[in-house]
C-alpha cells in the first residue's frame, strides 16, 4: 500500500453467523490495528450494567458478605439501556452517590429456606426495579434437558438460613472491572491463504497423501474420495501450526504447500455474556471506538504538537 494517495480504505464486514450471543464475521480491507482496536473495545470499553453496591440486611448463609457481593457483581444483567445510561460518577441527577434512575438500577433479594431441602438462590431470585435490566436468562440449549431453568446460582441455603439484601447496579466498563465486560470471547484470526502445489502433490502416493493430511491437528485438508486428490476442506481450520509444512519438509517435498496469512482480512468470533446481544455489542463497540476517535480528533485541533498528542492517547483511554 505504498504511494502518497489516500490511505482511506473502506472496510467491509460480512456476517457469517449470527445468534443472540454469538456472531462470526469477516472484516476485510483493513489492517490489524483496526481489527485489534475493535476487539479491545468490545472487551473493555463497551458499557454494561452490573451490580456494584450491595447492602446486606441479613446473611446467615455459609458464604460471607463479600463473597456474595462478588458473586452478585459477576451476574450479567441485560444492559441494552447501558449506552443511554449515565456513569454514576458524572450523573448530575444524583450528586455522585449513584442511586438515581439515570445511572442505577436497584435489585432486591429476599430468600429464606424453610424446608429440609437445600434451596438454591439464583439470579432469578433477584428482583429488579427496572424491567429492562434483569439478570440474563439463558435459554437452555439442550431444550428438553433441565426442564426448570434456575439461572445462575448465587448461594445454597439450608433450613433456617436467610439472605436478604439490596443491590445497586450501575453502568461501567470492562476496563474498571471484568464484571462490566459484555464479551465472553472476542477473538480474531488472519484469514489463511493456502496454495497447494498440485504437481508436487501428484508425486505423492495415496498413502503419503493420507499421512500428510493426517499430520494437521485440525481438519484443513482431505482427500477427495473420487479423484484421490488432496483438497482444502476448511481453510479457516488451519491454526498456523506449520505442522503440514514441517511434514512436507520431512517427507522431502518442501514447497508442497504454501500458506500465508492475508494481512487485510480477519475472521472475528464474538461471544457475548448475554448482557447485550452479540450484534449490538459489535455496533456499540464501533460507536465507542468512533467516540474515542472523535475525542482524538478534537484534541488534535487544540494541540498541534505531535509530542503531546502521543501522550494524550493514553489519557483518552479512560473516557
Amino acid at each position: 500500500m505504498e504511494g502518497g494517495a489516500s490511505y482511506a480504505r473502506m472496510p467491509r464486514v460480512k456476517i457469517r453467523e449470527l445468534k443472540d450471543d454469538y456472531v462470526k464475521f469477516e472484516l476485510r480491507d483493513t489492517d490489524a490495528s483496526i481489527a485489534n482496536s475493535l476487539r479491545r473495545v468490545m472487551i473493555a470499553e463497551v458499557p454494561t450494567v452490573a451490580i456494584d453496591l450491595v447492602e446486606i440486611e441479613v446473611n446467615s448463609s455459609v458464604l460471607n458478605d463479600e463473597f456474595i457481593a462478588h458473586r452478585l457483581g459477576l451476574i450479567p444483567l441485560t444492559s441494552d439501556r447501558a449506552m443511554a445510561m449515565r456513569f454514576s460518577r458524572d450523573c448530575d441527577a444524583c450528586d455522585g452517590d449513584g442511586q438515581c434512575e439515570f445511572c442505577s438500577v436497584e435489585f432486591h433479594l429476599r430468600v429464606k429456606c424453610m424446608t429440609d431441602e437445600t434451596l438454591d438462590v439464583t439470579s432469578k431470585d433477584l428482583y429488579s426495579s427496572d424491567h429492562t435490566v434483569v439478570p440474563v436468562d439463558f435459554p437452555d440449549p439442550a431444550g428438553m434437558e433441565g426442564s426448570e431453568n434456575r439461572g445462575i446460582i448465587i448461594v445454597k441455603l439450608r433450613r433456617g438460613q436467610e439472605l436478604r439484601l439490596r443491590a445497586i447496579a450501575r453502568k461501567g466498563i470492562g476496563k474498571d472491572h471484568a464484571k462490566w465486560s459484555p464479551a465472553a470471547t472476542v477473538t480474531f484470526m488472519y484469514e489463511p491463504e493456502i496454495h497447494l502445489n498440485e504437481d508436487l502433490m501428484e508425486s505423492l502416493t495415496l498413502e503419503e497423501k493420507k499421512e500428510w493430511v493426517e499430520s494437521s491437528p485440525t481438519r484443513v485438508f482431505d482427500i477427495d474420495s473420487v479423484t484421490q486428490q488432496v483438497v482444502v476442506v476448511d481453510r479457516e481450520a488451519y491454526t498456523y501450526d506449520d505442522e503440514v509444512i514441517k511434514k512436507a519438509e520431512a517427507m522431502g517435498k518442501p514447497g508442497l504447500v504454501e500458506i500465508n496469512a492475508k494481512q487485510d482480512s480477519f475472521i472475528f468470533t464474538v461471544e457475548s455474556t448475554g448482557a447485550i446481544k452479540a450484534s449490538q455489542l459489535l455496533l456499540n463497540a464501533i460507536d465507542v471506538l468512533r467516540q474515542k476517535l472523535d475525542a482524538v480528533r478534537l484534541s488534535d485541533d487544540n494541540v498541534d504538537t505531535t509530542e503531546q498528542f502521543g501522550e494524550l492517547g493514553s489519557h483518552l483511554g479512560g473516557s
Partner: peptide
C-alpha cells in the same frame, strides 16, 4: 488488563 493480554484464535 485483559485486552492487553495475548489471545489465541
Amino acid at each position: 488488563q485483559q485486552e492487553d493480554f495475548p489471545f489465541s484464535e
